[in-house]
Amino acid sequence: MTTPAKLSLWSVVRHILLVAGAVVMLLPFVWMISTASKPPSEVFSSELHLIPHQFALWENLQTAFAKANLWRFLLNGVMVTVSIFVLQVLVALPAAYALAKLRFIGRNALFALVLFGILIPPQATAIPVFLLLHKLGVLDSYAALVLPFTISVFGIFLMRQFFRNVPDDLVDAARMDGISEFGIVWRVMLPAAIPAVTAFGIFSVVAHWNDYFWPLIVLNSEHLRTPPLAVAHFRNAEAGTNYGALMAAAMVIIAPLLVAFLLAQRRFVEGIALTGIK
């Protein structure tokens, strides 16, 4: 790799390998778009071709939107993920501030609980939480989708780590200026923590937009379905008969996140990589 000739040779090999890998990674997406653009006659043909002879994307999209209330499902997805995120921030930020900047009896114990909470996978608490929501009579509602996720111990942990790096002087200055402790959380800490909140927001929204397990458990009604649940139901109803429309529906469901990702890649990668810490 020290001589230019070797360097360019390696560079060629590197690109060949990476392009080959990229093809495998992209294949499902390409095949999805390709199938979504084909009329049924071409979908059900053993002859392989990527570019449809007859372009039918529009028709497939129309069928998808006609057979399933996709707008409604997308709207559900937005409402649920946004409510979860907003509530998570409302709950986590004050706690993170107290854990990072205030001294009080029980602080270490509480932080230990937070760390322990991070270890608990969501599936582990599913049955009791389900029974609790059943007792409360809120199953099959937006509340059932949102309530269990209003507490994000991971969010508390993350924000606490970030807040610890905010200078104490800034907090003291706010106190001298007459801002209350609650005020400090929103007027001083939140603006200072915007990058961390953004990353956490992406993490949270992506996780809950894509979540299938929980909506599957608590929902019955069609009008409450979140996007993943909608695709699964669409597939159960249409599989084997109308792949073009199914692929079109899948495209619609993954589009919002993928577009957002392509627009703000760095932030998304940061946000998702947070899962690694979890």
């Binding site: 200078p167 002087d169 800034l170 003291d172 200055a173 007027r187 001083v188 603006p191 200072a192 915007i194």
Partner: peptide
């Protein structure tokens, strides 16, 4: 304050 403690967003 030593670090001035100006609110960075204001």
């Amino acid at each position: 304050f030593q670090s001035y403690a100006l609110y960075p967003h204001l």
